[in-house]
Amino acid sequence: MKVLVPIKRVIDYNVKARVKSDKTDVDLTNVKMAMNPFCEIAIEEAIRLKEAGTASEVIAVTIGPKASQEQLRTALALGADKAIHIETDEKLESLHIAKLLAKIVEQEAPELVILGKQSIDSDNNQTGQMLAALTKRGQGTFASKVEVVDGKVNVTREVDGGLQTVALSLPAIVTTDLRLNEPRYASLPNIMKAKRKPLEVIAADTLGVDLTARVQLISVEEPAKRTAGIIVEDVAQLVEKLKTEAKVI
């Protein structure tokens, strides 16, 4: 079966985001960018399905500016067979992304789409669920285990009280949680090979999706700062401070 993995280029997770002084957004000039960590897990899971003989082809797709092709090449180096770049310089929202992805789902007809559960920049946690709604497919979000059996996919989900397993009819949409797998590193020969793998570029505005903004970003501010408090000498002083000064115990 064919597996489609949408990925996103985001700020590297080790970098602390800085707000622009004019408060219009977060400053991303000269900031290290990388593949969103949850997307890496999605790619890894798709590759494992291919190695297990369950998947026949893995297609990576991204939506964004030209620079996003770096992340597609990473996906190809990790083992994806081909890549699709939907090119746009617009800042798109989850609903736009889901609608564009729905067009690719229509075109490629993958039986499984695996996405990250959220991107670490916008922290929305929406795209997979929206794509499932638009393509009328079942959804297995926050997956920590994915098993394809007899035309169904069993997804163990990380929920607030513990774990929940659901069975979805294929085709289906899965979003990954951190514990689904440990992503591999791309080897140098694979990085070289990835340069020759097919990468199709499609202009976003040719897909017939209305990309009008639905949400207006009014301002972005630094959160209220917490300042370092005091260092106590020992446990007795700590307990004393908590009782008499902070009055929390």
Partner: peptide, 17 residues
């Protein structure tokens, strides 16, 4: 208001829907 970038920034957003 909602936090973005792991709570390192707070965005004020207006829904146009």
């Amino acid at each position: 208001k909602r936090p973005i970038y792991a709570g390192n920034a707070i965005a004020t957003v207006k829904s146009l829907d």
